[in-house]
Amino acid sequence: MCTYTTIAAPVSGSAKGPGGQWFHVTDATVYFDHPVHAMDEHTLNIDLSDPSRGPGQRVALELTAASARELLAAIAAALDAAPDELTA
């Protein structure tokens, strides 16, 4: 199935993208749908991008549902382990 479901979030940070160049990312798009490359029928897909610099300025992730949850937990654990004053 195509879930179509798409969730957007503003972000700020950097990513290493096309041509091995770092760039500032402003947008995250998250959706659970067919992947382009992963060998699963559906994956949790994340696009980190800077739309102002064109469609190709993007880092794409396609994760199985289980691994996406692992990543979510790992991100939460890393943030929780850091002092509050650094992550506020």
Binding site: T6, A8, T29, V36, D47, P51, P55, R58
Partner: peptide
């Protein structure tokens, strides 16, 4: 329109967003 000349996957991601 949203992504002239872009790779299909990048164009699709832009249109979806």
């Amino acid at each position: 329109r949203e992504a002239p000349g872009a790779a299909p996957d990048d164009a699709s991601a832009t249109v979806r967003a």
